[in-house]
Design a protein around this nucleic acid. Structure first.
Lengths: 161, 161
DNA sequence: GGAGCAGATGCGGTTAAGTCGCATCTGTTG
DNA sequence: CAACAGATGCGACTTAACCGCATCTGCTCC
């Protein structure tokens, strides 16, 4: 009863099993459960703590350090992507359609940005400095449309501060 | 003797004094000392701990929490810029010539990237999504020229993994 | 289908970055 | 130069993340 708290998700996760195994990792209920949670988040970026809480509420309680290890392992296996939104907390998301993140520094809203939008920058960077932009998600801080509009109304000329 | 460990830098920092005061902050020896350290770092990105150590070695010892508070205050006053290189540690640099940072995920080397190189991305982003890229330094993870070359030699076809 | 083992997990303690409250001190203003 | 808002020092606290180790288990080979 101490160990058997995590039950494997019913099924439909054959793809996940294969990808875990392809990475040379064992298929454990904990790893499947973490993937299920991240998949159900559907694009949201969850911290280790978020994942741990969600697992607990879903009746798949597991140790915090296991969550950290599973997230690290799956990230290294390229099943997950680690994202740092700038608050010092690492967040994770399923690596399906790669994209970048524009984060509003005022309200915290995040907007997904296509890889394609960054391609020109990557090309230029490589041409000028030899630096090869990775496939890691970029953090693009700034103001979302709503906040920018609000600030423009209140101080039309001080937008650049 | 408990308080008077921090002595104001000799002089030549009149500009700093003015900018501190212009932000509505008091000109204290601690704030001047932090600015002096950051200025002497000349482009390097220092963590709060780095700054604290450097101050200590320079005979301007002050409390850790004071360093954190001074860095936060000066950042808010736009005298400093906070940069997160992706390891969860906040770093700071004098806000003089704004630029972005390309960080090699393999060797950790950082390359400064001009604002201009990112302008096209900013324009496109604004046109497509209304998101206004801020003046915050961007973290651009990838491979520096040296590491990219090394990896290309060892595995010419597996560069995308 | 059972045994054996490399690898994974649970548990508890530990580190590191950063924050907070409060008493004391000091830069600044009148 | 007196007074006070604001800054500092001190120490305790919070939070994210990591580590060692004993125990357990998915996988492989028979």
């Amino acid at each position: 009863m101490s160990r058997r708290t995590v039950k494997a998700p019913p099924s439909g996760d054959q793809g996940a099993r294969d990808r875990i195994r392809a990475a040379g990792l064992r298929v454990t209920p904990q790893r499947l459960a973490v993937l299920t949670v991240l998949r159900s988040a559907n694009g949201a970026h969850m911290s280790a703590e978020d994942v741990w809480l969600r697992l607990r509420r879903a009746g798949a309680a597991m140790d915090r350090s296991t969550v950290y290890r599973v997230l690290a392992d799956l990230t290294e296996a390229a099943l997950l992507e680690q994202v740092r939104l700038g608050d010092g907390v690492a967040r994770f998301e399923i690596q399906e359609v790669a994209h970048h993140h524009a984060v509003c520094t005022r309200c915290g809203a995040t907007t997904d940005v296509s890889i394609e939008a960054v391609r020109a920058l990557a090309t230029r960077l490589h041409r000028d400095t030899g630096f090869a932009l990775g496939h890691h998600p970029l953090l693009l801080p700034g103001l979302c449309a709503a906040c920018a509009a609000q600030l423009a109304t209140r101080a039309p000329h001080a937008a650049g501060a």
